[in-house]
Simulated scan of single mutants.
Amino acid sequence: MGISLAWVAVETLPGELALARLSLSKTAKQCGYPFIGLVSHALPYNWFLLAASRCDHRIASPASMAAISLGCRAVACAVEEHVGFASCELWEDGKRSWSVAHDGSEDPENISFEGRVPQRFHALVASVEGEDSENFDGHFHMDIPLILAKELSGFRHDDINPAVDDTPFDVLHDEQGVRPWWRLWQ
Rank of each mutant, 00 (worst) to 15 (best):
E151A: 08
R183Q: 15
S87P: 03
L50F: 06
S64Q: 01
S69M: 02
W47D: 00
D174I: 11
A163L: 14
E175Q: 15
H57L: 10
K29S: 08
G71N: 05
I36F: 15
A42N: 11
R120M: 13
S40H: 05
G15R: 10
N46A: 14
R21C: 14
W185P: 02
D56W: 11
I59F: 05
A126C: 07
F121M: 06
V75R: 01
G130K: 13
I59P: 00
Q119D: 13
D170P: 02
D170H: 11
A76D: 00
N46D: 12
Q119P: 05
S53F: 05
Y45S: 12
P44R: 11
E131F: 08
L90H: 00
F48T: 05
H122E: 10
S97H: 03
V100D: 01
E129S: 12
A101L: 11
C72E: 05
E89P: 02
L24C: 03
A66W: 01
S23K: 12
N46W: 06
L148I: 05
A20H: 09
A76K: 03
K95A: 15
F121V: 04
L19A: 05
S127K: 08
K150L: 08
W182R: 15
D137T: 14
A51F: 01
H173R: 15
S127E: 14
L22K: 02
E81C: 11
P168N: 08
E81D: 15
D166R: 14
Y33E: 08
Q119L: 13
L184Q: 10
I147R: 00
W7R: 04
W182I: 09
D165N: 14
S97I: 15
E11T: 10
V164P: 03
L148V: 06
P108L: 07
M142I: 09
P44Q: 15
F140Y: 12
R96W: 00
V125T: 04
H157F: 08
P34L: 07
W185Y: 11
A63I: 12
S4V: 04
A78G: 09
Q119Y: 09
